[in-house]
Amino acid sequence: MNGETAIRSIVLDALTILVLGLVLLPIIWVFVASMRPDADIMTRSLIPTRVTFDHFANIFARADFLAALRNSLLVGAVVAICTVLIAIPAAYSLSRFAYFGRDAIGFLILATQMLPAVAVLVPIVVIIRALGLANTLTALVLTHLALGLPIAVWMLKGYIDAVPRELEEASIIDGSSQIGAMFRITLPLIRPAVVAVGTFAFVLSWGEFILALALITSAEVKTLPLALQTLFDPYSFSWGVVMAGGVVIAMPTVILFLLFRNQLVGGLTAGGIKG
């Protein structure tokens, strides 16, 4: 049995490494290509002959790209904060309180995930234009919130359901209110989920392209995905500049994971013990 277990472990490790290599190879190629001269990128070799940071210098010398970077950071941060602030009480209400229509509300929240964003694109654009919010960052914040909130609520609800009610009841017996028990008992225990939800909301907003393309036409309020599209200039196209733009877009996601990796991979119990 030990021999069979060892062979099975080796085979699974080899398959994991193979799949991981297939997934990471394009990402690694983008990072490497962003630091290679354009002539070097077109060769079949994956190993660069010379390293250059001229592509990043060209990227950050563009005023439109810097404005798009600022807009994406602003929209992503606001969406992440608002998602967490709204999803926590909504999820807590669905998990802890019994009231008429709770199950129907929960079903409607979950049902919104059955529709792709493209299916509601036209109504969203019509509503945003009727409200006079076209070509504004406010429109992006509202639409990105609408996209991310349902899944955020259900993620947090699952974590709150796993927190024993007896812990909150003990806190209430000691004189705490229901809301106080939520802040003192439940929130520390679901801290990994809160971090994951905030990170998910930021990443979703950061990389969203379809709604931004439909709602934004002004260069002053474009986000990074839209700015990256402008790099595909048929008259002065540079693969290196495009790859550098892709690296810039990917970096916040990588940085967020490095900063919050313990919370993102931590379990419910581990998050409660550390809190």
Rank of each mutant, 00 (worst) to 15 (best):
F257G: 07
N58C: 08
L226Y: 13
V11G: 00
S95K: 10
S177P: 03
I151D: 04
E4D: 12
L204H: 08
T253S: 14
I109N: 10
M114L: 15
V221M: 02
G275E: 10
D103S: 12
I17E: 01
N135A: 02
L145V: 04
A90R: 07
L12D: 00
T16M: 13
V241C: 03
D38I: 05
I185T: 15
Q229A: 15
S176F: 07
A63V: 14
A193S: 10
V79D: 01
A63H: 11
A119I: 10
I255P: 01
L24F: 13
I105V: 15
A162R: 08
L25S: 12
V141C: 03
P37N: 09
A6W: 10
N58E: 14
I160C: 05
F100L: 13
I86Q: 09
K274W: 04
Q263W: 04
L94C: 13
E4S: 15
T199W: 02
S72C: 09
L211P: 02
V241H: 08
T269H: 12
S218Y: 01
P123Q: 01
M42F: 15
I7Y: 11
A98M: 09
L133A: 02
Y159D: 08
F200T: 10
D233Y: 08
P252S: 04
F260T: 05
G101I: 08
A130Q: 14
A170W: 04
